[in-house]
Simulated scan of single mutants.
Amino acid sequence: MAVHKAGRKAVRVATAVVAAALIGVAASACGPDDNGDGGGAGKSSSSAPESSSSAPDSKGPDSKGPASMGPASVKGGVITVGDPKAKHTVKVYEDSRCPFCKKFEEGGAQALVGPVAEGKVKVEYVIASFLDKNLGGSGSVNAANALRASVEAGKFPQYHAAVFASQPEEESHDAYTPAFLLKIADKVDGLRSGTFDKAVTKGTYKKWVGEAMSTFTDDGVQATPTVLIDGEKAEGEALYDQGAFAKELKKAGIS
């Protein structure tokens, strides 16, 4: 009897360990979920990064900030930053309302700025909008539309950084309204214009937003952020630390 009890206890402990591991995985990414429960979309707010009202430095090619990464281009549902002929490619799948995408942008993604500016790597962004379905509202669609508009203005890297830096404290708060997105745009020199403002307020690129979401789905991606380095998925906490992600890039020959 004692042996059976010990065996049952061991099973319970093992089950608890597995469950804890799964919770840890779910708490480090945002996932599409038809049940609307967030699919690990950061319901545990303690795991999400704190909000910031300031955008990363975007001024001047010598700052090694977003501006130094050069202009962006669009092909299908993908926005590409950097030299299209760069030897290496990093593909980034994000949803603007995902707190872990913000954590990536303020952590691991910072290791990309230099290599992109130097022409060693290009970054392909797929801007998803599934969290609107999970959490309600239209913030992800609004933000994706505004980000697409910033490409036409030649300010995508700077505005992309500003949008994530200005992410609301709770991803369930649908704060990415057109008015708020225009307020964020004020932080990027030269972005605001009649054309840009109209695109943001009128949803000029919502058809493209759907195309980007189709790309996300067709690529079989299950969570954001998902990051591929030359086709290989970057895993774990390395996404959220600049030094650790720099090591992952170096393994792929990017430094």
Results as ranks from 00 to 15, higher is better:
4 H>Y: 11
90 V>K: 00
64 K>C: 02
29 A>C: 02
208 W>I: 03
60 G>R: 14
193 S>N: 15
122 K>E: 06
111 A>F: 01
63 S>G: 09
96 S>G: 05
217 T>I: 10
137 G>K: 04
224 T>P: 01
14 A>F: 12
199 A>H: 02
186 D>V: 05
62 D>K: 14
69 M>P: 03
154 G>N: 12
102 K>T: 06
147 L>A: 07
154 G>V: 10
207 K>D: 15
51 S>H: 15
46 S>R: 13
71 P>G: 12
206 K>M: 11
240 Y>I: 12
69 M>L: 14
197 D>Y: 01
117 A>N: 06
16 A>D: 07
79 I>A: 02
251 K>E: 10
202 K>Y: 03
187 K>R: 13
124 E>L: 05
58 S>M: 11
142 N>S: 09
160 H>N: 14
140 S>L: 06
171 E>D: 12
160 H>C: 07
199 A>Y: 00
145 N>L: 09
1 M>I: 10
91 K>T: 15
223 A>M: 04
179 A>R: 12
136 G>W: 09
154 G>L: 14
200 V>E: 01
117 A>E: 02
49 P>R: 06
116 V>L: 00
118 E>A: 12
99 P>Q: 08
203 G>L: 11
180 F>R: 12
65 G>P: 05
238 A>D: 15
168 P>G: 14
57 D>S: 15
8 R>F: 09
203 G>D: 05
93 Y>R: 01
104 F>C: 04
54 S>H: 14
161 A>F: 13
18 V>P: 06
168 P>Q: 15
77 G>V: 11
70 G>F: 05
198 K>Y: 07
130 F>H: 09
105 E>S: 14
134 N>K: 00
239 L>M: 07
223 A>D: 02
63 S>V: 08
122 K>S: 03
70 G>H: 02
152 E>I: 00
203 G>S: 11
139 G>C: 06
56 P>S: 13
